[in-house]
């Protein structure tokens, strides 16, 4: 335990404290950069867009993951194998490859648009990428597998007899699903949503490629402030705010979902 903590301190905490220091000292000492975070319209719009994208991605990922997990945990052996394959394969493909894969599929001259045009379904290509929609599609695809595991553990811990009991008392399958199955896997839903949301907040590569510079998220904004415009102070202040926000969410996560329930 001790060497690991030491490593984390040297590799993460120490540099982060440096970033905190910049946020208070560059370009001049004071709280000016935090004032800018709260008032700068550009920073504000990026924060709002980030929250919006993350909420949509979380909602879509958790719903999709829930459906996949139901099949994975409760399906027939063949269905389980297929679901497992779908969950595991994405882990073997790098995030960069996946982002470019989506560009190839979604761009104006990509597979989907050319196919839809060739069957005469549309005349002009649909704007599927280099905008928020593309970012949402790419991020959701990346995050669904991560949403599966907390859900799977909640579903595996569920006593089948409780479901039988509901059916025996006259509840239909739909009723049993909504009033028993979903509430009883709520801890998994909360855990899964928080994990996806926290991951999504820090996304950099996927929005950078699929957003095409038009739909900048917080991580990309930090990158731009540090590497492209020499505004290290503002970049640092944004980072600190982001880390505090994520920290608060993690605290919530551990409060509502015990860590052992998540794997």
């Amino acid at each position: 335990m001790a060497p690991l903590l030491l490593f984390l301190a040297v590799a993460y905490l120490w540099p982060f404290l440096g970033v905190v220091k910049w946020s208070f000292t560059l370009p001049e000492p004071g709280l000016g950069q935090y004032g800018a975070v709260l008032t700068d319209p550009l920073v504000q719009s990026v924060f709002i867009r980030t929250l919006r994208i993350c909420l949509i991605v979380t909602l879509v990922s958790v719903v999709a993951a829930y459906a996949i997990t139901v099949v994975w945990v409760r399906g027939t052996p063949t269905q389980r194998m297929l679901a497992e394959f779908c969950i595991l394969v994405p882990f073997w493909i790098s995030v960069l490859t996946r982002a470019f894969g989506w560009v190839a599929l979604l761009s104006n001259r990509g597979l989907i648009n050319t196919w839809l045009q060739s069957i005469g379904f549309i005349s002009e290509p649909l704007a599927l990428v280099r905008n928020e929609l593309g970012v949402i599609i790419g991020m959701t695809h990346f995050l669904i597998p991560f949403a599966v595991f907390p859900l799977a553990s909640a579903m595996r811990n569920l006593d089948d007899r409780v479901l039988l009991a509901a059916r025996g008392m006259g509840a239909s399958r739909t009723r049993t699903f909504w009033s028993v199955f979903v509430p009883m896997t709520m801890s998994g839903i909360i855990g899964s949503a928080l994990i996806v949301f926290v991951f999504a907040l820090g996304f950099f590569v996927t929005p950078a490629i699929l957003g095409g510079g038009r739909s900048v998220m917080v991580a990309e904004l930090v990158y731009l402030r540090i590497f492209q415009s020499p505004d290290w102070g503002l970049g640092s202040a944004i980072s600190v705010v982001l880390v505090l926000f994520v920290g608060a969410l993690m605290a919530l996560l551990f409060r509502y979902v015990r860590p052992r329930q998540m794997v």
């Binding site: 007899r161 409780v162 039988l164 009883m184 709520m186």
Partner: peptide
């Protein structure tokens, strides 16, 4: 039906 272990709805 009364199940072994009762199968009450915990929530």
């Amino acid at each position: 039906m009364v199940f072994q272990g009762y199968a009450l709805f915990p929530h």
